[in-house]
């Protein structure tokens, strides 16, 4: 069965993609499987300059999930371009460059530079990282700044699809989805992590050095499914469903809620081979559900 999908012009050979921040620059997973087996992946969030990231502890396990406050540690654009891209160009999979800035100017400079890199198939704007002081969620939780930064990036991105990764830490995500679409976004990634906290009761303080962190994993799946559902109702552009996907059944759930494709995040840490495994299991599940393609199930749960 052909399970390929077209995500705003990005050809995905299957609808299962590695989520930013859990997939390095792809190459980390080469020791587990052939990267050409997966639909694609989103890089670790890139900034103009490299970043050291947050103090430790950065992670903490939670019921069916984990909290992280990595702080967008990354190699920076130049090293990504010179060290990672030459290897990635040789691999037949979609490379989606996730990026962020601290100002609108930084966002647009990065967007323009990434738009010009051969071998990058799409751009994913991170306006929703909960773990940094400046940038990230400071943009994505305010409707006006969301509009400004998406419009600014849209004006410089000429060649590649521009996807916006939304924050779930807002009152009404569909409002943000609509603004992104109206500002020229080609697609949405729904959702980034939910802000959470764990307290060490013996130390009487939060476990993470950052205090709060982003909650991910199967624990957040129902929240994510509902937000994909809301966004699908609000916009026409395609949606990546993200949030605790751990099985082929979960992939289908997001697709029925309105996702064109999905991203797998935290479960990569637990089962590094999970993405090719889900891609392999998907056709059989689709058959059992009486479907001939992924596309016909997109938004299926909305129909009467």
């Amino acid at each position: 069965m052909d399970i390929s999908v077209d995500f705003s012009g990005i050809k995905l050979k299957n609808p299962v993609v590695g989520a930013s921040g859990t997939f390095g620059y792809g190459l980390t997973y080469e020791k587990f499987f052939d990267l050409s087996l997966i639909g694609g992946f989103c890089t670790k969030g890139l900034s103009l300059q490299s970043r050291a990231g947050n103090p430790i502890p950065r992670i903490c396990e939670t019921p069916s999930g984990m909290l992280n406050a990595i702080g967008l540690q990354n190699v920076g654009l130049d090293k990504f371009t010179s060290k990672k891209m030459p290897k990635l160009r040789k691999i037949d999979t979609a490379v989606i460059a996730n990026f962020f800035g601290e100002t609108v100017e930084e966002y647009t400079e990065l967007a323009a530079k990434l738009d010009a890199i051969d071998g990058v198939h799409g751009l994913e704007m991170n306006i929703s990282c909960p773990n940094v002081e400046k940038g990230g969620a400071a943009f994505g939780t305010d409707i006006k700044t969301t509009e400004a930064v998406v419009k600014a990036c849209r004006s410089v991105v000429k060649n590649k699809p521009l996807i916006v990764k939304l924050s779930p830490n807002v009152t009404d995500i569909s409002e943000f989805a609509r603004v992104c679409e109206a500002s020229g976004a080609d697609g949405l990634s729904v959702i980034n992590t939910l802000v959470g906290m764990v307290i060490d009761i013996t130390k009487r303080k939060p476990v993470l050095a950052n205090g709060a962190g982003g909650l991910s994993g199967p624990a957040i799946r129902p929240v994510a499914v509902r937000m994909v559902w809301q966004c699908y109702k609000a916009v026409k552009i395609p949606i990546f469903g993200i949030g605790g996907i751990a099985s082929a059944r979960d992939v289908v759930e997001f697709i029925m809620a309105g996702a064109t494709a999905v991203q797998v995040g935290t479960m990569n840490f637990v089962s590094p081979g999970i993405i090719p495994q889900l891609a392999e299991e998907l056709p059989e599940l689709l058959r059992r559900l009486g479907a001939d393609s992924v596309t016909e199930l997109v938004g299926a749960a909305h129909r009467d």
Partner: peptide, 23 residues
């Protein structure tokens, strides 16, 4: 250190390099 993946993807387990702003 607490570790989510064990193979370099999560960047959760990092240690601070002595005398440098680097992990």
């Amino acid at each position: 250190n607490s570790m989510a993946c064990g193979f370099g993807a999560c960047l959760g387990c990092v240690a601070h390099v002595r005398g440098e702003e680097r992990y």
